[in-house]
Computed example of a mutant assay.
Amino acid sequence: MKTERAKEIYQSKDTFSVRLEGKPVWIENVDETNGMATVQIESNPLNTATVSVDRLQEED
Rank of each mutant, 00 (worst) to 15 (best):
R55H: 10
N29D: 13
E21V: 07
F16S: 09
Y10C: 05
K23D: 15
Q57K: 13
Q11D: 15
P45H: 08
E32P: 04
N29I: 01
W26L: 08
K23C: 13
Q11N: 15
N29V: 02
I27C: 05
A6I: 00
S43Y: 10
T50Q: 11
G35Q: 07
Q40M: 14
G35N: 01
T50H: 04
V53Q: 01
K2Y: 14
T38Q: 07
G22C: 02
E32L: 05
E8I: 00
N47S: 02
T3Q: 08
Q11L: 15
T15P: 00
A37H: 11
F16R: 03
V51D: 02
N44H: 05
V39I: 01
T38K: 02
N44K: 04
I41G: 02
D14M: 05
N29L: 06
Q57R: 14
D14K: 15
T3D: 10
P45R: 06
L46T: 00
S43C: 00
S43A: 04
S17A: 10
L46C: 04
V18R: 12
D14L: 12
E4P: 03
E32N: 06
M1S: 14
T3E: 09
E21C: 09
D31G: 00
L46R: 11
V51P: 04
T48A: 04
K23F: 12
L56S: 00
V18P: 10
Y10W: 11
V53N: 03
K23M: 15
E21K: 14
T48S: 13
F16G: 03
S43W: 08
T15A: 09
T48D: 01
K2N: 15
E59N: 03
G22V: 05
F16K: 05
T50N: 06
L56K: 02
Q57V: 06
F16M: 02
Q57L: 06
L46H: 11
M36W: 13
D14W: 03
K13A: 12
E32V: 07
L56E: 04
E32M: 09
V51Y: 05
K7Q: 14
A6S: 07
T48W: 03
E59I: 01
E58Y: 00
E8R: 08
T3K: 06
V25D: 08
W26H: 14
Q11Y: 14
I9V: 12
M36C: 03
S43T: 05
T15N: 12
D31H: 08
D31E: 11
K13H: 14
K2M: 14
A49D: 10
M36G: 04
N44E: 00
D31F: 09
R55P: 03
V39H: 01
K2C: 14
N29P: 03
V51T: 04
G22P: 03
V18L: 11
F16A: 08
D31Y: 07
G22N: 06
E32S: 09
R55A: 11
A37P: 10
E32G: 02
W26K: 12
S12R: 12
R5V: 05
N34C: 02
E28T: 03
A37N: 12
E58M: 06
T48F: 02
V51F: 01
R55E: 15
E21R: 13
A37K: 08
S43K: 11
V18M: 11
V25G: 08
R55W: 10
K23T: 09
T48E: 06
D60Q: 14
K13M: 12
E4Y: 07
K7S: 12
K13I: 11
I9H: 06
N34Q: 10
